[in-house]
Structures are given as structure tokens and as C-alpha cells.
């Protein structure tokens, strides 16, 4: 009997451990800065943050970082004529879209990397055929330089023109999870269903985190 109660309390202990809230790390570069608050010098950490941006979305509306304030979002890079990994990525992203449809705290941001073909008009046709309505999932168009710069410098996703790649562009299939303070909180291979599953779990964690950060 005694042994049993020890085992039971041990189990309880384990259970209480697993209940501690999971937290996601903050990714990317960071630097320590010293600043003076009320006469004392303190050290603060500045995390990599998505800088201000503005792009045209599939409805030819100019959207900016402000549209993502107080929301968590997933960013990716694709192009509509992409014959390789994009269909897989967006097949998986559709699951994310369906799960958080109508949730005002969640958005999806897909950047086209083909600014010669993928005009907002073509992005709209693509979104419609994919089965996406409204502006919760933004398909955005920007000039080559601005998209490539924010992709590589801010979201840390490699993109580029490559004549040898299928479709003429090479890019990585990462889904980048960004929190309400525009910090990078996760990177998932958008071509792998199990990683996208994990991302959705992590999105729930991030939503739980609320406005603490």
C-alpha cells in the first residue's frame, strides 16, 4: 500500500511537470544593449524583428506590417507557376488556414518571388482556385528587391532566380512563425505534414502566450 502511494505521488509529480507551459524560443540574431533606466545601467536584449514592410495583396490593396500588429502569422515564399514544392506547401498551409479560419489573431502571409508573372490579378485567381477568401491569408506582390531582401534578411529564407531550377526560381519551403511582437518563433518545413502539425501546436502555444511578450 505504501509502495502504491509512493508510485502514485511520483506519477502526480510527473504530471505536474508536464503541465508547465511550453514556451517557444525566440530565433534569429540578438544583441545586448545597455541602457539607463532611473539612473541605473541595465542590460537588455534586442531580438531580431521583422522590419516595416508594405506590399500589394491579391485585391491590389496596399498592406503593411501594421495589418499584422497584435497578430501571430505564418510567412512563406512561393510563386504560382511553381511546379516543384509550392503545391505541397500550400496543400499543407490550407490545413492551417482551415484550422484558424476567422480567428482575428492569426494571419498567413505568402510572398510571391516571381514579380514578372504573379501580379495581384494572378494572385487573386490563384487564391480563389485554392479556395481562399477574404484577407486572412494574404498573397502579396512586391518588387523583386524588396521581397528578396525581407526573405533573406528578415525571415531567413533563401530565395533566388535560378534558370536550372524547375520554373526558373529556387526557394526554400520554410513556414516562418512570427509572434505579435514580430519576433521569429519557429521555422518548419512546409513540405512535411508532420512539421506543419507541429507548427499548429506551436501556434496554439503562441496564442496562449497572449500579450505577455
Amino acid at each position: 500500500m505504501n509502495k502504491l502511494s509512493i508510485a502514485a505521488s511520483f506519477l502526480l509529480f510527473l504530471a505536474s511537470c508536464s503541465e508547465s507551459k511550453k514556451q517557444l524560443p525566440i530565433l534569429g540574431a540578438r544583441e545586448a544593449v545597455e541602457k539607463t533606466v532611473e539612473g541605473k545601467t541595465i542590460t537588455d536584449t534586442i531580438y531580431q524583428t521583422i522590419p516595416p514592410f508594405s506590399f500589394l495583396n491579391q485585391d491590389s490593396v496596399l498592406i503593411s506590417n501594421k495589418d499584422f500588429d497584435n497578430k501571430i502569422y505564418v510567412a512563406d515564399f512561393f510563386f504560382t507557376r511553381c511546379p516543384s514544392i509550392c503545391p505541397v506547401m500550400h496543400r499543407n498551409m490550407l490545413k492551417v488556414y482551415e484550422k484558424y479560419k476567422g480567428n482575428p489573431e492569426v494571419k498567413i502571409l505568402s510572398h510571391t518571388i516571381d514579380d514578372t508573372y504573379d501580379t495581384p490579378y494572378r494572385l487573386k485567381a490563384y487564391a480563389k482556385k485554392l479556395g481562399v477568401e477574404g484577407d486572412q491569408w494574404e498573397f502579396v506582390y512586391g518588387k523583386h528587391d524588396s521581397v528578396y531582401t525581407i526573405g533573406e534578411k528578415s525571415y531567413l529564407v533563401a530565395v533566388g532566380k535560378d534558370e536550372n531550377a524547375p520554373g526558373g526560381y529556387m526557394h526554400q519551403g520554410w513556414f516562418i512563425l512570427v509572434d505579435k511582437s514580430k519576433h521569429l518563433r519557429g521555422a518548419y518545413d512546409g513540405t512535411k505534414p508532420d512539421q506543419v502539425e507541429q507548427m499548429m501546436k506551436d501556434m496554439d502555444v503562441l496564442l496562449d502566450e497572449g500579450d505577455e511578450k
Binding site: P83, S84, P87, K128, L130
Partner: peptide, 15 residues
């Protein structure tokens, strides 16, 4: 498979 998927389901109205 990338486009037509492992179940042959394609993708919405695109594929």
C-alpha cells in the same frame, strides 16, 4: 506527387 498528392487528390481547383 508534389502536385497531384500522395492520394491522387490534386489541389483544390488548381490541380
Amino acid at each position: 506527387q508534389n502536385c497531384h498528392s500522395s492520394t491522387g487528390a490534386g489541389l483544390s481547383m488548381l490541380i
